[in-house]
Design a protein around this nucleic acid. Structure first.
Lengths: 125, 125
DNA sequence: ACCTTATTGATAATAATTACTAATAAGAAT
DNA sequence: ATTCTTATTAGTAATTATTATCAATAAGGT
Protein backbone atom coordinates (compact mmCIF):
# COMPACT_ATOMS: atom_id res chain seq x y z
CA UNK A 1 0.00 0.00 0.00
CA UNK A 2 0.99 3.61 -0.50
CA UNK A 3 3.10 5.27 2.17
CA UNK A 4 3.11 8.85 3.34
CA UNK A 5 6.45 10.53 2.98
CA UNK A 6 7.59 14.06 3.61
CA UNK A 7 8.49 14.24 -0.08
CA UNK A 8 4.91 13.60 -1.14
CA UNK A 9 3.64 16.10 1.39
CA UNK A 10 5.98 18.85 0.29
CA UNK A 11 5.27 18.26 -3.41
CA UNK A 12 1.56 18.58 -2.77
CA UNK A 13 2.20 21.71 -0.74
CA UNK A 14 4.22 23.17 -3.61
CA UNK A 15 1.29 22.63 -5.96
CA UNK A 16 -0.96 24.56 -3.61
CA UNK A 17 1.48 27.39 -2.97
CA UNK A 18 2.70 27.84 -6.52
CA UNK A 19 0.60 28.69 -9.56
CA UNK A 20 0.53 25.75 -12.00
CA UNK A 21 4.24 25.09 -11.47
CA UNK A 22 6.56 23.07 -13.65
CA UNK A 23 8.36 20.04 -12.23
CA UNK A 24 11.47 22.19 -11.85
CA UNK A 25 9.59 24.85 -9.92
CA UNK A 26 8.16 22.19 -7.61
CA UNK A 27 11.70 20.90 -7.15
CA UNK A 28 13.11 24.34 -6.28
CA UNK A 29 10.32 24.92 -3.78
CA UNK A 30 10.66 21.47 -2.23
CA UNK A 31 14.41 21.76 -1.78
CA UNK A 32 13.91 24.64 0.64
CA UNK A 33 12.13 22.34 3.06
CA UNK A 34 13.72 19.07 2.10
CA UNK A 35 17.19 19.82 0.68
CA UNK A 36 18.08 16.26 -0.23
CA UNK A 37 15.01 15.75 -2.44
CA UNK A 38 15.95 14.84 -5.98
CA UNK A 39 14.41 16.00 -9.23
CA UNK A 40 13.69 12.40 -10.15
CA UNK A 41 11.63 12.01 -7.00
CA UNK A 42 9.64 15.11 -7.86
CA UNK A 43 8.95 13.77 -11.35
CA UNK A 44 7.98 10.37 -9.96
CA UNK A 45 5.62 11.79 -7.36
CA UNK A 46 4.02 14.16 -9.85
CA UNK A 47 3.65 11.33 -12.35
CA UNK A 48 2.06 8.99 -9.81
CA UNK A 49 -0.30 11.66 -8.50
CA UNK A 50 -1.36 12.40 -12.07
CA UNK A 51 -1.93 8.70 -12.74
CA UNK A 52 -4.13 8.50 -9.67
CA UNK A 53 -5.86 11.64 -10.93
CA UNK A 54 -5.03 13.41 -7.69
CA UNK A 55 -3.48 16.19 -9.75
CA UNK A 56 -3.60 17.43 -13.33
CA UNK A 57 -0.75 17.21 -15.83
CA UNK A 58 -0.79 20.13 -18.27
CA UNK A 59 1.23 19.96 -21.47
CA UNK A 60 1.78 23.09 -23.54
CA UNK A 61 3.61 23.89 -26.77
CA UNK A 62 7.03 25.46 -26.26
CA UNK A 63 6.71 25.14 -22.52
CA UNK A 64 7.74 22.42 -20.08
CA UNK A 65 4.92 20.49 -18.42
CA UNK A 66 2.93 22.19 -15.71
CA UNK A 67 0.92 20.65 -12.87
CA UNK A 68 -2.31 21.64 -11.15
CA UNK A 69 -3.78 20.44 -7.86
CA UNK A 70 -7.23 21.19 -9.26
CA UNK A 71 -8.53 18.26 -11.23
CA UNK A 72 -12.11 19.25 -11.90
CA UNK A 73 -13.02 20.46 -15.39
CA UNK A 74 -11.57 23.87 -16.06
CA UNK A 75 -9.49 25.53 -18.72
CA UNK A 76 -6.11 27.18 -18.86
CA UNK A 77 -4.43 30.20 -20.32
CA UNK A 78 -0.75 30.23 -21.12
CA UNK A 79 1.21 33.41 -21.68
CA UNK A 80 3.49 33.05 -24.67
CA UNK A 81 5.93 35.54 -23.19
CA UNK A 82 6.43 34.54 -19.55
CA UNK A 83 5.18 30.96 -20.09
CA UNK A 84 3.09 31.06 -16.91
CA UNK A 85 -0.16 29.18 -16.77
CA UNK A 86 -3.37 30.53 -15.28
CA UNK A 87 -6.86 29.20 -14.73
CA UNK A 88 -9.36 30.87 -16.97
CA UNK A 89 -12.88 31.09 -15.76
CA UNK A 90 -14.92 29.94 -18.69
CA UNK A 91 -17.40 27.24 -17.66
CA UNK A 92 -16.53 23.67 -18.56
CA UNK A 93 -18.48 22.55 -21.62
CA UNK A 94 -19.55 19.06 -20.65
CA UNK A 95 -21.59 18.81 -23.85
CA UNK A 96 -18.39 18.74 -25.93
CA UNK A 97 -17.67 15.27 -24.53
CA UNK A 98 -20.64 13.58 -26.18
CA UNK A 99 -19.72 10.66 -28.47
CA UNK A 100 -18.51 11.90 -31.80
CA UNK A 101 -18.43 9.96 -35.04
CA UNK A 102 -15.57 7.49 -34.91
CA UNK A 103 -14.07 8.83 -31.71
CA UNK A 104 -14.93 7.84 -28.18
CA UNK A 105 -14.29 11.08 -26.39
CA UNK A 106 -13.52 10.84 -22.70
CA UNK A 107 -12.43 14.37 -22.06
CA UNK A 108 -11.17 17.55 -23.63
CA UNK A 109 -8.92 20.39 -22.68
CA UNK A 110 -8.83 23.94 -23.91
CA UNK A 111 -5.71 26.00 -23.86
CA UNK A 112 -5.92 29.70 -24.50
CA UNK A 113 -2.89 31.53 -25.79
CA UNK A 114 -1.89 35.14 -25.70
CA UNK A 115 -0.27 37.61 -23.34
CA UNK A 116 -1.02 37.96 -19.66
CA UNK A 117 -1.72 41.47 -18.35
CA UNK A 118 1.84 41.92 -17.05
CA UNK A 119 3.52 40.92 -20.28
CA UNK A 120 1.02 42.86 -22.36
CA UNK A 121 1.96 45.98 -20.44
CA UNK A 122 5.70 45.38 -20.70
CA UNK A 123 5.29 44.72 -24.41
CA UNK A 124 4.48 48.45 -24.54
CA UNK A 125 1.70 47.99 -27.02
CA UNK B 1 14.92 35.25 -49.90
CA UNK B 2 13.60 31.77 -49.38
CA UNK B 3 14.67 29.06 -51.77
CA UNK B 4 12.75 26.06 -53.01
CA UNK B 5 14.46 22.78 -52.24
CA UNK B 6 13.44 19.21 -52.79
CA UNK B 7 13.58 18.75 -49.02
CA UNK B 8 10.93 21.40 -48.44
CA UNK B 9 8.79 19.93 -51.18
CA UNK B 10 8.94 16.42 -49.82
CA UNK B 11 8.25 17.54 -46.24
CA UNK B 12 5.16 19.39 -47.40
CA UNK B 13 4.12 16.35 -49.41
CA UNK B 14 4.53 14.16 -46.32
CA UNK B 15 2.20 16.43 -44.38
CA UNK B 16 -0.44 16.03 -47.08
CA UNK B 17 -0.03 12.28 -47.46
CA UNK B 18 0.24 11.40 -43.78
CA UNK B 19 -2.34 12.13 -41.10
CA UNK B 20 -0.99 14.69 -38.63
CA UNK B 21 2.44 13.06 -38.61
CA UNK B 22 5.20 13.48 -36.06
CA UNK B 23 8.59 14.84 -37.16
CA UNK B 24 9.89 11.27 -37.13
CA UNK B 25 7.08 10.07 -39.39
CA UNK B 26 7.77 12.92 -41.80
CA UNK B 27 11.43 11.91 -41.73
CA UNK B 28 10.68 8.24 -42.48
CA UNK B 29 8.42 9.24 -45.35
CA UNK B 30 10.87 11.75 -46.75
CA UNK B 31 13.79 9.33 -46.71
CA UNK B 32 12.04 7.11 -49.24
CA UNK B 33 12.23 9.89 -51.81
CA UNK B 34 15.29 11.70 -50.55
CA UNK B 35 17.47 9.17 -48.71
CA UNK B 36 20.13 11.63 -47.62
CA UNK B 37 17.68 13.93 -45.83
CA UNK B 38 18.50 14.33 -42.16
CA UNK B 39 16.17 14.46 -39.19
CA UNK B 40 17.57 17.87 -38.29
CA UNK B 41 16.55 19.19 -41.68
CA UNK B 42 13.03 17.86 -41.18
CA UNK B 43 12.80 19.55 -37.78
CA UNK B 44 14.17 22.79 -39.19
CA UNK B 45 11.79 22.84 -42.14
CA UNK B 46 8.80 21.98 -39.94
CA UNK B 47 9.82 24.65 -37.44
CA UNK B 48 10.23 27.32 -40.11
CA UNK B 49 6.95 26.43 -41.80
CA UNK B 50 5.22 26.64 -38.43
CA UNK B 51 6.83 30.02 -37.75
CA UNK B 52 5.57 31.29 -41.09
CA UNK B 53 2.19 29.82 -40.15
CA UNK B 54 2.22 27.71 -43.28
CA UNK B 55 1.60 24.66 -41.12
CA UNK B 56 0.34 23.93 -37.62
CA UNK B 57 2.44 22.61 -34.77
CA UNK B 58 0.40 20.38 -32.43
CA UNK B 59 1.71 19.53 -28.97
CA UNK B 60 0.05 16.77 -26.96
CA UNK B 61 0.64 15.25 -23.54
CA UNK B 62 2.54 11.97 -23.62
CA UNK B 63 2.98 12.21 -27.34
CA UNK B 64 5.71 13.71 -29.53
CA UNK B 65 4.76 16.80 -31.49
CA UNK B 66 2.53 16.42 -34.51
CA UNK B 67 2.16 18.67 -37.55
CA UNK B 68 -0.79 19.63 -39.72
CA UNK B 69 -0.85 21.27 -43.15
CA UNK B 70 -4.25 22.74 -42.25
CA UNK B 71 -3.83 26.00 -40.39
CA UNK B 72 -7.37 27.33 -40.24
CA UNK B 73 -9.24 27.05 -36.94
CA UNK B 74 -10.15 23.47 -36.19
CA UNK B 75 -9.80 21.06 -33.31
CA UNK B 76 -8.05 17.76 -32.78
CA UNK B 77 -8.65 14.40 -31.24
CA UNK B 78 -5.81 12.29 -29.93
CA UNK B 79 -6.16 8.58 -29.22
CA UNK B 80 -4.51 7.74 -25.92
CA UNK B 81 -3.78 4.22 -27.14
CA UNK B 82 -2.30 4.56 -30.65
CA UNK B 83 -1.32 8.22 -30.16
CA UNK B 84 -2.64 9.18 -33.59
CA UNK B 85 -4.16 12.58 -34.11
CA UNK B 86 -7.32 13.28 -36.09
CA UNK B 87 -9.28 16.34 -37.05
CA UNK B 88 -12.57 16.54 -35.24
CA UNK B 89 -15.36 18.36 -36.96
CA UNK B 90 -16.71 20.62 -34.28
CA UNK B 91 -16.99 24.20 -35.53
CA UNK B 92 -14.36 26.65 -34.38
CA UNK B 93 -15.69 28.83 -31.56
CA UNK B 94 -14.41 32.26 -32.52
CA UNK B 95 -16.34 33.78 -29.62
CA UNK B 96 -14.01 32.08 -27.12
CA UNK B 97 -11.26 34.42 -28.24
CA UNK B 98 -12.88 37.59 -26.94
CA UNK B 99 -10.78 39.51 -24.42
CA UNK B 100 -10.99 37.95 -20.99
CA UNK B 101 -10.31 39.64 -17.67
CA UNK B 102 -6.56 39.98 -17.31
CA UNK B 103 -5.66 37.88 -20.31
CA UNK B 104 -5.26 39.05 -23.87
CA UNK B 105 -6.38 35.96 -25.71
CA UNK B 106 -5.12 35.57 -29.24
CA UNK B 107 -6.18 32.03 -29.93
CA UNK B 108 -7.22 28.78 -28.33
CA UNK B 109 -6.91 25.11 -29.11
CA UNK B 110 -9.06 22.23 -28.03
CA UNK B 111 -7.74 18.74 -27.73
CA UNK B 112 -10.15 15.88 -27.30
CA UNK B 113 -8.93 12.71 -25.67
CA UNK B 114 -10.20 9.18 -25.75
CA UNK B 115 -10.00 6.12 -27.95
CA UNK B 116 -10.30 6.07 -31.70
CA UNK B 117 -12.72 3.54 -33.22
CA UNK B 118 -9.94 1.05 -34.01
CA UNK B 119 -8.43 1.07 -30.55
CA UNK B 120 -11.85 1.03 -28.91
CA UNK B 121 -12.63 -2.17 -30.79
CA UNK B 122 -9.30 -3.81 -29.99
CA UNK B 123 -9.76 -2.86 -26.36
CA UNK B 124 -12.59 -5.39 -26.44
CA UNK B 125 -14.91 -3.30 -24.37
C1' DA C 1 29.08 29.93 -66.05
C1' DC C 2 29.61 32.54 -61.90
C1' DC C 3 28.56 34.31 -57.41
C1' DT C 4 26.16 35.00 -53.28
C1' DT C 5 24.18 33.11 -49.52
C1' DA C 6 20.10 30.18 -48.04
C1' DT C 7 19.97 25.61 -47.04
C1' DT C 8 21.54 21.15 -46.02
C1' DG C 9 23.74 16.85 -43.69
C1' DA C 10 26.23 15.39 -40.04
C1' DT C 11 27.15 15.71 -35.66
C1' DA C 12 27.25 17.62 -31.10
C1' DA C 13 24.68 19.70 -27.53
C1' DT C 14 20.72 20.58 -24.77
C1' DA C 15 16.29 20.08 -22.35
C1' DA C 16 12.99 17.40 -20.33
C1' DT C 17 11.88 13.25 -18.64
C1' DT C 18 12.30 8.32 -17.46
C1' DA C 19 14.77 4.16 -15.82
C1' DC C 20 17.88 1.79 -12.69
C1' DT C 21 19.62 0.38 -8.28
C1' DA C 22 21.43 0.17 -3.77
C1' DA C 23 20.23 2.52 0.48
C1' DT C 24 16.56 4.28 3.36
C1' DA C 25 12.48 4.53 6.01
C1' DA C 26 7.09 3.84 6.47
C1' DG C 27 4.24 1.35 9.01
C1' DA C 28 2.44 -3.43 9.82
C1' DA C 29 3.54 -7.48 12.51
C1' DT C 30 5.64 -9.29 16.39
C1' DA D 1 9.52 -0.89 21.37
C1' DT D 2 12.00 -3.90 17.94
C1' DT D 3 11.94 -6.32 13.91
C1' DC D 4 10.63 -7.08 9.26
C1' DT D 5 8.89 -6.23 4.75
C1' DT D 6 8.87 -3.60 0.91
C1' DA D 7 7.41 1.09 -0.90
C1' DT D 8 10.03 4.90 -1.63
C1' DT D 9 14.00 7.63 -2.17
C1' DA D 10 18.63 9.82 -3.82
C1' DG D 11 21.80 9.68 -7.07
C1' DT D 12 23.05 8.63 -11.35
C1' DA D 13 22.74 6.91 -15.99
C1' DA D 14 20.00 6.53 -20.01
C1' DT D 15 16.56 7.98 -23.21
C1' DT D 16 13.67 10.89 -25.99
C1' DA D 17 12.69 14.87 -28.42
C1' DT D 18 14.49 18.76 -30.11
C1' DT D 19 17.79 22.51 -31.15
C1' DA D 20 22.40 24.41 -32.36
C1' DT D 21 26.76 24.42 -34.95
C1' DC D 22 29.30 24.56 -39.04
C1' DA D 23 31.61 23.28 -43.19
C1' DA D 24 29.88 21.71 -47.65
C1' DT D 25 26.28 22.13 -51.07
C1' DA D 26 23.15 24.03 -54.28
C1' DA D 27 19.19 27.61 -55.46
C1' DG D 28 18.53 31.00 -58.41
C1' DG D 29 19.73 35.91 -59.50
C1' DT D 30 23.39 38.27 -62.26
Amino acid sequence: MSRNTKQKTIVLEALHKLNHPTALEVYEYSKQVCPQISLGTVYRILGNFALDEKILHIKIANNPDHYDYQTHGHYHFSCKKCLNVYDIDIPYMENLNKPHKECFIEDHSILFNGLCADCYQKEGK
